[in-house]
Simulated assay, not measured.
Amino acid sequence: MPGAWSVLIVVAVVAVGLLVLFFWRLRTLSHRVGSFECALFEGKRWASGIVTYTRDHLDFYEVVSLSLRPSRRWARREMDILARERPVDDGPGALAEARCSYAGTEFQIAAEDGALDGLRSWLEAAPPDPSTSRIV
C-alpha cells in the first residue's frame, strides 16, 4: 500500500507541474509585445490561439499545447488578407473574421476588430524586398 501512495503523489506532482507550465506559457505568450488572441480555421475546425508578430513572420501558438514553438508560421511577404467581415456589434471586443491567403492556401482567422486592423497595417508596412528593389 505505501507504494500506491508514492505513485499517486508522483502523479499529482507531475500534473500540478504540467498545469503550472501550461499557464506560464499562456501568460508569457499573451504578454509579448505585438500579440493578440486569435482563432484559426483551416478547413475542418477552429483552433484557439495567440498570434505574435516578429519582424518577418506571424506566429500562431495554439492555446491547448505545451510547445514553446509556434504551430503555424506565416512569412510576412507571402501572406495577404483577401476579404474581411466587419463585426455586427461595434462595441469593444467585437470579433471580426478575415479570409487570408498564404502560399496558395486559404484560411480564416477571427480576432478583435482592432487586432485585424493591426494585422493589415503590419502587412502593409513591410519593408521593400531587397532582391527586387533596384535603383535605376
Rank of each mutant, 00 (worst) to 15 (best):
D90L: 08
E124H: 09
P87N: 06
S121D: 15
R134F: 15
A98R: 01
D113H: 13
G114Q: 12
D90S: 13
G118R: 09
E112F: 07
R99G: 00
L116D: 07
D129G: 05
E124Y: 12
E106C: 11
E97K: 09
P92D: 09
R120D: 12
L123A: 00
L95F: 02
R134D: 14
E97N: 06
G104M: 07
R120W: 15
A115F: 02
A115S: 07
G118F: 04
Y102H: 07
E112V: 07
E124R: 14
A103W: 08
S101E: 08
W122P: 03
A111P: 04
D129I: 07
G114S: 12
F107M: 14
S101T: 02
I135R: 00
A103K: 12
C100I: 11
G118L: 02
F107K: 08
A111I: 04
S133I: 15
P127S: 10
S133E: 14
L116T: 11
P92L: 14
S101A: 03
L116F: 00
A115K: 06
E106A: 15
D90E: 08
A115Y: 05
D117K: 03
S133Y: 10
R134I: 15
G93H: 02
P127G: 12
L119G: 04
A115G: 02
A111T: 05
G118N: 04
W122Y: 03
D129T: 05
I135H: 04
D90W: 01
S131Q: 13
S101M: 06
